[in-house]
Simulated scan of single mutants.
Amino acid sequence: MEIEKKVLIGIDLNFETPFILRSAVSLFREASVKFYVLHIVPAGAFSFINKKKMLQSKTDEARKSVEHKLEETGLHYLNYEIFVSFGATASEILNFPKRIGIDIIAIGTHQRIGFKEFVFGSVSFAVAKNSICPVLLIPLKNIVESTEDELVKDPAISLINP
């Protein structure tokens, strides 16, 4: 019996999400895998009076969005679990494998360097540098010029292995 691998896919719920999902899944087609899809809502986004109710609402909304992205990309058949977390993105991604025992982390990277990295930061760099498990960086540089409709139709495997 093959041991099931655990793959964490960090997503941002933007137009690049379908590409990241398809890219990560395409690399693990032949293996027995359970995918953990993680979306992080920045903690500073909530300074409301009824914080608990707002957090639950945001969690439900994010779960529905992730489900929609999985259906949109034709990946709803996968063995997966959805997690929504609140806090600093890099920290949350780095702490998740410690709780679940993840084998590999898959995240997108804009490949920012120099001043852009200094100003915007680099979650992927922080995760890759500090992770306790291997990190798969999915380059998003080539998809910035594509429209959202083109990304949904374009097979991810062609961009990973041109």
Rank of each mutant, 00 (worst) to 15 (best):
V25T: 06
F46G: 01
L38R: 01
F48Y: 11
L75I: 01
E71Y: 07
H68K: 14
L70K: 00
L136R: 04
A88G: 07
V135P: 03
L94G: 11
L159I: 03
N130C: 10
K5P: 08
I102N: 13
I143Q: 13
L151E: 04
G121M: 10
A24D: 04
V41K: 04
L137F: 00
Q111G: 14
L136D: 06
I113M: 10
S124N: 12
E117D: 14
F118R: 13
P134V: 15
I93G: 06
F35C: 00
A43M: 08
A62E: 06
G44S: 07
V119H: 10
P155F: 13
L151G: 02
I104A: 06
E67L: 07
L38W: 02
L55N: 04
A24S: 00
E148L: 02
G74Y: 14
S26L: 06
L8W: 13
D154H: 04
K5Y: 09
E148W: 13
D12P: 02
S26N: 13
G114C: 11
Y77D: 13
N161K: 10
I143N: 05
I107P: 00
D12E: 12
S57Q: 09
F86D: 01
I20C: 03
F96D: 10
I93Y: 09
I82S: 01
E148Y: 12
V25Y: 10
N130Y: 15
I138N: 00
F83M: 06
E117Q: 15
L55C: 08
S26H: 15
I3H: 10
G114P: 05
L75D: 07
A156F: 07
I104R: 13
K58H: 05
L38V: 01
S26W: 04
L94S: 12
K116F: 14
F48D: 00
I143C: 07
R22I: 05
S131Y: 13
S23R: 01
I49G: 03
L21P: 00
T109V: 11
G87E: 05
F28W: 09
V25E: 07
E72R: 11
R29M: 05
S47G: 14
V37S: 02
V41S: 08
K98G: 09
K34F: 05
H39F: 11
G87P: 03
E30M: 04
I160W: 03
I82C: 04
H76V: 09
I9L: 03
G74I: 04
H68P: 00
H39S: 05
P97D: 12
K53T: 00
K129H: 15
A106S: 15
I160M: 14
V144Y: 13
I160F: 12
H110P: 01
E71S: 11
L27I: 08
K129V: 01
P42E: 12
L140D: 06
F35S: 00
Y80G: 02
D103R: 04
G44P: 00
S57A: 10
T89A: 15
K6C: 08
L151F: 02
L8K: 04
N79Y: 09
P18I: 06
K116R: 14
F15D: 12
S65F: 05
R22G: 04
M1Q: 12
I11S: 06
R112Q: 13
P139M: 09
D154C: 05
S85N: 13
S65I: 02
V123S: 08
K58C: 07
F83W: 03
D103N: 15
F83L: 07
G121C: 11
E61P: 01
V66N: 00
I138W: 02
I82W: 05
